[in-house]
Write a protein that binds this DNA or RNA. Structure first.
Length: 501
RNA sequence: GUCCCUUUCGUCUAGAGGCCUAGGACAUCUCCCUUUCACGGAGAAGACACGAGUUCGAAUCUCGUAAGGGACGCCA
């Protein structure tokens, strides 16, 4: 690994993210997409979205749409691939959905067969599993040994003509040797060629298999760099063999570590939220998500923790990719999110909060000045946009539940007196909203007339306003709340104090 | 079973033979700010998986062991 990585200038940078549409986009996939995106943008290359939908049973158009929505949310726009709205291909190397490239794979499979480097195999599922069991019983690697390996093409074609279903198997060369991969994140990796048996290229259904289309497409789409998940590392051997059989130049590969849950097992659904969509719905910002997942296996050369998209592009380089698996730490995500949240201009922050307010049926004044003051008062306690709902609720015209510590405050001997006076004074106030000065004056009067100070003064007032004894400063909170609402809540507090608590 | 990958504070990581008494960030704890909470500021605690070797010197190189992960599919 070199100190500062620079891609080979003679090859245009073209990278791809190639998800299979079998569910939502999970955070691991998002990170792979992000790294590829950053790589392309950093080096002025193309970022391609290719859809690996050759598993007919599991691929759905709904999943494809969901994943595209998630990529759009993350802002990882692609130069080639299905159009984000219409799904119609854009770019000169299409189609970009593998299910629509079947003819291409068939042609190349036939070329490899013609070279004598692949063959038709008529083995049934039973024969294969039987062989595998036998091999395992003998302690040998569970590789298939097809009896059709040595058939002539004529023989095979005759059987094919009878309508017998056949797969196409790659013929792994006899003499054992090492295939050497120079991995961008792992350095030199050696695979012994006998690591794999004759593997399937084309299913009997005519659909190609992942390793085959991946190799074909990476070449045909002129992919220069492949950044993908670690689970593909061993697959790379097969792809290297296919490239070799066709006499093609290999792209560069970088195998990314996997993302683990808190129990150090591969992150999966049982860990709770793992899809990008979950995080979006839970009020995380796209900026924070990108920032946080970028840091899961990559570090900024300046040890910077909070980075904008531009900074990520500027600083990204594969030589700072970490080879070890990383645990997804939600706490740090929260911190990253809170930090980005506070850095957002208020106008923008408000726009992002709006969908959450609407969902909770909360309505607020539309003037920017009010919104600006409200955000200044409350955003420091906001980790996620969703937190904004509970935080802003006291500013809306709704009833609020009293919390347990609030009841404690209200049980103080002087509290009913204080709240009653507070109610009386605000009810008599001429304006719809109190100013900070108004509040101070009112507070002074209560202080004198009720002969209380300190927490015995402001805590009951606070509870009579927001239903709980902690929160933002009263002097900024009160000018944000309609007087009618303040009176209503004071009444509510009083009635609760009348009844035994 | 065979092959491949990985292993630094609880977590994310810096580190590419002497700069390491191992640095930063999140989380934790303490203090300051504050008539509450949060924000902010200062500080504390906390790690080189283990064992051999190479070397004057090893977190860094080599080999073993252990643990975790991956591949060995007509899944991707």
């Amino acid at each position: 690994m070199s100190q500062s990585y620079v891609p080979n200038k003679s090859v245009p940078v073209r990278v791809r993210f190639a998800p299979s549409p079998t569910g939502y986009l999970h955070v691991g996939g998002a990170r792979t997409a992000l790294y590829n995106y950053l790589f392309a943008r950093r080096w002025g290359g193309k970022f391609i979205l290719r859809i690996e939908d050759t598993d007919e049973a599991r691929s759905t158009i709904e999943s494809l749409k969901m994943q595209i929505e998630d990529l759009k949310w993350l802002g990882l726009d692609w130069d080639e691939g299905p159009h984000p709205q219409t799904l119609i291909d854009k770019g000169h190397f299409g189609p970009y959905r593998q299910s629509q490239r079947r003819i291409i794979y068939k042609e190349w499979a036939e070329k490899i067969i013609a070279k004598g480097l692949a063959y038709y195999c008529f083995m049934t599922d039973e024969e294969i599993s039987q062989q595998r069991q036998q091999a395992e019983a003998q302690g040998k690697p569970p590789q298939v040994n097809s009896p059709y390996r040595h058939w002539t093409l004529d023989q095979a074609q005759e059987k094919l003509a009878q309508g017998t279903p056949a797969t196409v198997r790659f013929k792994v060369m006899g003499e054992k040797r090492d295939y050497v991969l120079n991995d961008l994140v792992r350095g030199e990796v050696r695979f012994p060629s006998d690591m794999v048996g004759d593997f399937v290229l084309m299913r009997s259904s005519g659909m190609p298999v992942f390793n085959f289309c991946c190799a074909i497409d990476d070449h045909l789409m002129q992919i220069s760099h492949v950044l993908r998940a670690e689970e593909h590392l061993s697959n790379t051997l097969r792809q290297m063999m296919i490239f070799e059989a066709l006499g093609w130049k290999l792209p560069e590969y970088g195998h990314l570590s996997i993302i683990l849950g808190p129990d150090k097992q591969k992150l999966s659904k049982r860990h709770g939220a793992t899809s990008c969509n979950d995080y979006r719905e839970n009020g995380f910002l796209q900026e924070a998500m990108n920032n946080f997942i970028a840091l899961l296996g990559w570090s900024s050369p300046q040890a910077q923790e909070i980075l904008s998209r531009e900074e990520l592009i500027e600083q990204f380089s594969p030589d700072r990719l970490h080879a070890a698996a990383a645990v997804f730490d939600e706490q740090k995500l929260h911190w990253v999110n809170a930090t980005h949240l506070r850095n957002l201009p208020h106008e923008e922050l408000w726009q992002r909060l709006l969908p959450f307010f609407n969902q909770a049926q909360l309505e607020f004044p539309t003037d920017m000045d009010w919104q600006d003051r409200a955000l200044s008062a409350l955003k420091t306690s906001m980790m996620t946009l969703k937190d904004g709902v509970e935080l802003f609720k006291p500013l809306a015209k709704t009833t609020l539940p009293f919390t347990l510590p609030a009841k404690d405050t209200m049980s103080w001997e002087s509290s009913p007196k204080v709240v009653a006076k507070w109610r009386e004074l605000i009810a008599a106030h001429p304006q719809r909203y109190l100013t900070e000065d108004d509040f101070h004056q009112i507070q002074e009067i209560i202080k004198k007339e009720c002969a209380v100070k300190g927490k015995f003064l402001f805590m009951p007032i606070r509870v009579a306003i927001i239903g709980k004894p902690e929160g933002a400063e009263l002097k900024v909170l009160i000018p944000l709340i309609d007087k009618e609402v303040l009176v209503e809540r004071a009444d509510m507090a009083l009635s609760l104090m009348d009844s035994p608590l």
